[in-house]
Design a protein around this nucleic acid. Structure first.
Lengths: 182, 182
DNA sequence: GGGACCATGTAAATAGTTACATGATTAA
DNA sequence: TTAATCATGTAACTATTTACATGGTCCC
């Protein structure tokens, strides 16, 4: 593993100038189903990237609010392009729900149903959001020549979330069936 | 976040005595699609858990090989049960492939196809393994009263990997279509 | 004899979260 | 006026990886 916060920052700044706060919000909103970053990583990285000349602060005073926007530099673009050319590392996934399920005795499964309900609710929301983004993207022009790729990424989210939800229904049914037998 | 290595260890030892090495292999084999741990976490945790009395070393000399097996204690079981009673934290997922895709310009997508091919190959393998485990489990008795839950966990893996593969075919087709248009 | 794998471990470095501090603005 | 949210940051802690060291066994 190797820190990728700087890449996410460069990637996002490659499309538009953003503040640290904006970056965090964007990641939470658009990347939530496949990535996450915390402020504790973003702000220090912004400083480092600026020092390294890969981004630069854009000191436009705007509506009195103190907001530090950054723009990518051509050096930054180069670093980003280079990273895009390297094979992706194996993805990492950690699903505590499955760990609990794996270790739970059949005879005490009422808790599991609650956990799955929560999981289901959360991913239903994700699915709704993803469908919204997709429709939105399909209806506007493509200034960065990556619309189709972004839509593909969103479709990944839609497909996996759909799979999650299918599993939830199925599994809840199974658990109930099991309860009745007892 | 909070370290869960100790829980994975307790959960696995709850079914049978295992060495650190065994634990690592089991996680890599059975949990690969939703969890991972490294030796650097497992061995130190084993020491800590032993000191805390949640597991105990089982010094059976076996076939001359120096292998340190551990067994869970009743205190350990209690800690495990307590953890099972707490709501799972939000799962964490990091898929570099999607990050690359999101940031890649439409016009340079031949690399993407390679990345997706690799992803596809890896998850085809996972799917084969998962189907194998499922059949295996369905054919043997259930000594720990959690067979059905384990099968559900495996079905989660089957469904999501299937979704991954569907996405791969679709997306590769899209990229090719796009290439032809250029 | 050598390669693959069994087996245990540690140190150093890095990654990542969390909790806290601070203050402005907006809208009810 | 108060709660929410905008906005930036840091320090302390915790989690996690990686690279290394060491030695045994099994089988060709």
């Amino acid at each position: 593993m190797e820190n990728k916060t700087h890449i996410v920052i460069l990637g996002l700044l490659n499309e538009q100038p953003l503040s640290g706060y904006d970056i965090k919000k964007l990641i939470d909103l658009r990347f939530r189903f496949f990535w996450n970053e915390s402020y504790g990583q973003i702000y220090p990285q912004l400083k480092k990237l600026e020092k390294a000349g890969l981004i630069k602060a854009d000191n436009k005073e705007e509506s009195g609010r103190s907001k530090q926007r950054y723009m990518i530099t051509s050096d930054g673009r180069e670093v980003l392009q280079q990273w895009l050319g390297m094979s992706p590392e194996k993805e990492s996934v950690r699903i505590e729900l499955l760990l609990k399920m794996y270790f739970t005795d059949q005879r005490s499964s009422s808790l599991l149903t609650d956990y799955i309900d929560t999981f289901q609710a959360s991913h239903s929301q994700d699915l709704i959001l993803l469908n919204l983004f997709k429709r939105e993207l399909e209806s506007i022009p493509d200034p960065h020549h990556n619309h189709q790729n972004i839509i593909s990424v969103i479709e990944f989210g839609i497909k996996t979330n759909q799979a999650y939800l299918d599993w939830c229904s199925e599994t809840i049914t199974n658990l109930e069936k099991n309860d009745e037998q007892k």
